[in-house]
Amino acid sequence: MAEPTPRAPHIIRVHQLTKSFGSLTAVSDVTFDVQRGETFGLLGPNGAGKSTTISIIVGAMEGDGGQVEIDGRDIREGASVRRLIGIAPQSLALYDVLSAERNLVFFGSLYGLTGARLSERVDWALKFAQLEDRRRDLVKTFSGGMKRRLNMACALVHDPQIILLDEPTVGVDPQSRNHIFECIERLKDDGRTIIYTTHYMEEAQRLCNRIAIMDHGKLLALDTLDGLLAEFGGAAVVTAGLVKSPTDASILPAALDGLHLRFESKQPLEEVSRLATRGVAFATLNVAKPDLESVFLSLTGRSLRD
């Protein structure tokens, strides 16, 4: 009996992708793989090329060069590949004058769902979006957060293996944002592969296994959160207020400014502990660890929110 062909560890492979709009290079030589069941973050400021990359991956746009493979097949191969993917675009993509249920039925039907299976998936999607009691209401009567949730539900109604969420929390209230996070975490637990684009570093830190940082169409770095912090995050910044000046100032890692001490360290807690054992008494203590903001700053020389 023939051995089954082992499945490749990656479900998405993007190789040397490029795309230009006139003189503007939106995506430049971008290469990455996404593993099965992984939540992959694409982090970058607005205009970094994240949405264009996503559009090429899902086949909504043709790249000028490079390759995209979904589960070992070219995205242009057709319907069977597209059925694997569900996308919640950054701009809401819903029919305002149809009800939530009708939107889900329509998009589910496009992916070949019919009958009981369609009804079951529509019910699941409405529950997922917490819109069961508003299922027959027109979308135009929904709040921004409800629309965002329905936008996600439309991406999931056909039960895709790969889910692309393009800035899913833009313009939503904190309550809806938390609900969206919980939904994504449930999808992660369910083993779905997720590509998540955002310009909010907190979201990438909370949700993503690996994070790719993009700017000006280029992939600047790709690693786990810890890996990125270790490589590009730099040292932690410790600021402290001392009770009194130590008798031997040479034990301090930096010069005192009155009773205020500020220094950088890759191992800040160990350094604070060492000072304490030498008799330094702290009135206040603050340790600012590096984050993705500092990673981005380190990579581009500017803030993520600029």
């Binding site: 993509a93 029919y95 496009l110 992916y111």
Partner: peptide
Amino acid sequence: SQGTFYRLRVAPI
């Protein structure tokens, strides 16, 4: 303009 054309183009049609 409302973005649904994008979703249609991504769908298997």
